[in-house]
Nucleic acid binder design. Structure first.
Length: 326
DNA sequence: CTTTTCGA
DNA sequence: TCGAAAAGG
């Protein structure tokens, strides 16, 4: 499982919000919401944001509390949602399902063992956004005039594509595989307290004197979400081997190894399903009253919980007005 | 000694 | 996500 592996290769540096002010951020919605559901909102008050119908809508609180952070730092968010099932073929889907089931098994084991930390960690990995959460999130974002983009497949891939095209200045995500999808700049830790962390694709390539395709090959050798890596190969070995043999195929041949569906996984990173069907308005006119009604009346969230968040959103509108991101 | 793997 | 143990050069 190669997320930490990619991190060790990436060119990362801390930046200040001032450094990135005035830019458009293509936020991986799944990733972002997830973070709010598992950390800020849900942990502190579990079960608190469940309606009388039993629907969990902590996501609405997360959005109201999380959006001001963007506006107060003069960032324009665009939320990119995952599409249905990825167009990757059955093998990969099956594999991912297997991985998920494995995570679920471990969750059960951890619970039985009474290991609370492990259980929480596994739950974060296992839990997926329900359709209610997806729908209500889209609805609230629409009322708040936050542009929403529907990715055909992976939100990460779509966000990275938009950044490559120049329609967004940054991808906002905690995941490192935006590098593999070719995102020039990725901002991490947008939700946490401190400064954001900037991940730079060109800087990463220069640091190791490799091409983007070689970076993908290196990642695949270590293992990605879509393929098992080669046993005994970590980041150091992978970089060395790819530089020595030119590409993934050369390395696999040299070591007598095989990665199932390697060509398809590689192609998925190089040229994933994306769409040009999106519209990022430069004006910003949220209907805060309607949004407040939606959250507190339609979904019965305690008004006190979101009062401050809506206040901050209102302030961001009156202070800045229109057309600041053009 | 460096890198990867594994377990909590 | 981390630190200790194993692997391997």
């Amino acid at each position: 499982m190669g997320n930490a592996d990619l991190r060790s290769l990436a060119a990362l540096r801390e930046v200040s919000f001032d450094d990135v002010a005035g830019s458009v951020v293509a936020v991986d919605a799944h990733n972002w919401l997830y973070r709010y559901l598992t950390t800020t909102v849900k942990w502190t008050n579990s079960g608190k944001y469940t309606t009388s119908d039993g629907e969990e809508v902590a996501n609405l609180v997360g959005i109201v509390q999380g959006l001001p952070k963007f506006y107060e730092h003069d960032l324009r968010p665009v939320f990119v949602f995952d599409g249905g099932v990825t167009e990757m073929k059955d093998d990969e889907v099956a594999k991912r399902r297997a991985q998920r089931e494995k995570a679920e098994e471990r969750l059960e084991e951890a619970r039985e063992a009474g290991d609370a930390i492990e259980a929480a960690r596994m739950e974060a990995r296992t839990q997926r956004l329900t359709s209610t959460i997806q729908e209500t999130s889209r609805e609230l974002l629409a009322l708040l005039d936050v542009p929403v983009v529907e990715a055909p497949a992976e939100g990460e891939a779509q966000a990275s594509y938009m950044a490559r095209k120049g329609d967004a200045d940054y991808v906002g995500s905690e995941d490192y595989d935006t590098l593999l999808f070719g995102a020039p700049y990725t901002l991490r830790q947008l939700t946490s307290k401190g400064n954001p962390e900037l991940m730079d694709l060109d800087g990463t390539l220069e640091k190791h004197d490799i091409t983007w395709e070689q970076l993908i090959d290196i990642a695949m050798l270590c293992g990605t979400d879509f393929n098992e890596g080669v046993s005994g190969v970590g980041p150091k070995t992978a970089v060395k081997a790819v530089k020595e043999h030119g590409d993934l195929w050369g390395v696999l041949e040299d070591r007598g190894e095989h990665i199932p569906n390697a060509d398809r996984v590689r192609e998925f990173f190089v040229d994933p399903p994306v769409t040009d069907d999106y519209d990022i308005d430069s004006d910003y006119s949220p209907d805060v009253a309607a949004a407040r009604e939606y959250v507190t009346e339609t979904w019965e969230v305690d008004a006190n919980e979101v009062a401050r968040g809506f206040e901050r959103i209102e302030e961001s509108v009156t202070q800045t007005g229109l057309d600041r991101w053009t």
